[in-house]
Amino acid sequence: MLGNLLVALSGFILYSDKVFSFLGMQFIVPEKWAAAGMDFPTFVWFCSQTISPAIWALSTRLFKTHLLIHAVPVYCYVLQLYFIFFDFKIVDDSYLQVYVVGTTVLTMLALLGMWWLLRRHVAQKIEQAKKIVLENGK
């Protein structure tokens, strides 16, 4: 349960800059970032981009998580890619969510496919090892 919450948090944390802006919260940006002209929301976004994958990796490693919950950070990262690589006009496009959902579904299917192939490969290796052990035991 805790692992699933942390995986979901790893996706949601990517939007912490939006939450701070919505709530009107702002803290002092470190001097070297302020000197470079970075504002508070951008600083928070950079920090969340670093913290999010660490939370995702640790929660997956330390806890047993449901595979489907990984759709949350995948969805959030795919949405981030749309913000980064496309003109901001597409963000206002009503089809954006369809694109992101479709890309997330395809990404999750690819991950499931890789997991299935890996599992099948490991099962084949185990069967081969069993045969060798049985043949050597006779």
Rank of each mutant, 00 (worst) to 15 (best):
P73S: 05
W115P: 02
I13K: 02
E135T: 09
S59D: 01
Q124G: 01
F85T: 05
E31S: 05
K138S: 08
I51Y: 06
A110P: 02
E31L: 02
V105M: 00
C76S: 14
L68V: 15
L14G: 04
W33C: 03
W33A: 06
G37F: 07
V133P: 02
I90D: 10
F22Y: 07
C76V: 09
T60A: 00
Q80H: 13
K131W: 04
T42I: 10
A35F: 01
S21P: 00
K89R: 15
Q80I: 12
L81N: 10
I84H: 07
F40L: 02
S48W: 07
L2F: 13
Y77H: 13
T65S: 04
F88W: 15
Q80L: 14
R120V: 14
T60D: 08
E135V: 06
F85P: 03
D92L: 11
A129S: 15
F22G: 02
I84Y: 12
V19L: 00
S10N: 00
A110F: 08
V101G: 01
A57Y: 14
L106M: 07
K89L: 13
P41R: 09
S16P: 06
W116H: 12
F12V: 05
T42G: 00
G24H: 04
W116E: 11
F85G: 04
F83Y: 15
W115I: 14
V101S: 07
S52M: 07
M1F: 12
F86V: 12
M38R: 04
I90E: 09
W33G: 03
V98W: 11
F85W: 08
C47M: 14
K64N: 11
L79R: 08
V78F: 09
I13G: 02
F20A: 02
S59N: 03
P41L: 06
W116C: 04
Q49C: 10
E135N: 07
L109P: 12
V101L: 12
Y75V: 08
E135P: 01
A8I: 15
V133A: 06
W45C: 03
I51K: 03
L23W: 08
S94N: 07
S94D: 03
I126S: 08
V72C: 08
N4D: 13
V74H: 09
A57E: 10
L68E: 13
L81K: 01
L14S: 04
F86Q: 14
A123C: 09
K131R: 14
F20E: 06
V74P: 12
P30D: 06
Q49L: 15
D93Q: 11
C76D: 10
N4K: 03
W45D: 11
I132G: 03
T107S: 00
V101T: 12
T103A: 02
F27R: 06
W115N: 13
T65F: 03
T104S: 05
L118N: 09
A110I: 06
L109G: 03
M38N: 04
F46V: 10
C47S: 09
Q124K: 14
E135S: 05
K125W: 11
Q128W: 10
A57M: 12
L134I: 13
D39H: 07
I51N: 04
F83R: 06
G11M: 05
L109C: 12
S52C: 04
S21L: 00
F85D: 03
Q128F: 06
W115C: 05
W115V: 12
M108A: 00
A123N: 12
I132M: 08
G11S: 03
L62Y: 11
E127P: 09
C76K: 13
I28D: 09
F46Q: 07
L67R: 12
S94F: 10
L79P: 00
G3T: 07
S48K: 08
